[in-house]
């Protein structure tokens, strides 16, 4: 019965549902987890990488660029980091749109785009794909971790329908329910970045399917204010830096070979 309504994008079912939107959200709930935490002095993003393997060429992600591996976490503007869950190909298109929107604002107003405005720009576009025929919605949910002088540090989440909302801590992608209930228990209103980093990593290690965390499965980013210039400073961690961070937080994977030698 549903087939009569879901083969075209923008038709309501008799129950009042837009099936394509629900399917897009379903697709995202199987994608790699992306988690965001708003702290007093910054915002933290952590993401689970899905495309992994011994044969994957990671040489480009070790150096160059803004850091990260280019799968989940991207710099959208110098004051906003985006974490994307869903279809990677759609995500690339969304990232490109976001960067263009951010630069257009910079050109017109000579200021960095306010975080909520960037979220609005993207959601206006995403909403358009729920209304016009012959198109499918973007299979992407986003987290926006950003700073602007109006509301300081902010964390927003948007979904394929074009809805967006602001959060203190939230999660998109696989197991987002588990992660969010964990965050609800652990989150404190006056949390600082250094503690938020630990909380983000611990939550990720509990929600991810794999037992051990490592840079090959994880992307990580932090947005803070530069202590000298007072301008937002986005840091997307490189693989080596992620491993160092995990080591510091005591979540690093144990080297099995060394254990074997010891035994």
């Amino acid at each position: 019965m549903a087939r009569r309504y879901d083969s075209r994008t923008t038709i309501f079912s008799p129950e009042g549902k837009l099936y394509q939107i629900e399917y897009a959200m379903e697709a995202i709930s199987h994608a790699g987890t992306v988690l965001g935490l708003l702290a007093k002095d910054g915002v933290v993003l952590a993401a689970e990488k899905k495309v992994t393997g011994k044969l994957l060429d990671l040489s480009a992600t070790k150096e160059g660029g803004y850091g990260g591996s280019g799968e989940k976490i991207f710099l959208l503007s110098s004051n906003v980091i985006g974490g994307l869950a869903g279809l990677t190909a759609d995500a690339n298109s969304v990232v490109n749109y976001a960067r263009t929107a951010a630069q257009q604002h910079l050109l017109a107003y000579n200021e960095e785009i306010p975080v909520e405005l960037l979220a609005q720009r993207l959601c206006d576009m995403k909403q358009g794909y729920t209304q016009f025929g012959g198109l499918r919605p973007f299979g992407v949910s986003l987290l926006y971790a950003g700073y602007d002088p109006h509301y300081q540090f902010q964390l927003y989440r948007s979904d394929p329908s074009g809805n967006y909302s602001g959060w203190k801590a939230t999660c998109i992608g696989a197991n987002n329910g588990t992660a969010q209930s964990l965050l609800k228990q652990e989150y404190k209103d006056d949390i600082e970045v250094k503690d938020a980093i630990g909380l983000a990593l611990r939550t990720m290690s509990k929600t991810m399917d794999s037992t051990t965390l490592g840079s090959e499965k994880l992307e990580f980013a932090v947005l803070t204010l530069d202590p000298v210039t007072k301008q937002p400073k986005a840091k997307i961690y490189r693989p080596a830096e992620i491993d160092a961070l995990l080591e510091k937080e005591g979540l690093a994977k144990k080297d099995e070979d060394t254990e074997m030698k010891a035994a």
Binding site: A108, Y109, N110, E111, P114, Q120, P149, H150
Partner: peptide
């Protein structure tokens, strides 16, 4: 449209343009 007004620097930049 955006709930808060443009800041003076942003408004001036827009006017100049």
């Amino acid at each position: 449209r955006n709930l808060y007004a443009l800041r003076p620097s942003a408004a001036a930049s827009w006017i100049r343009r």
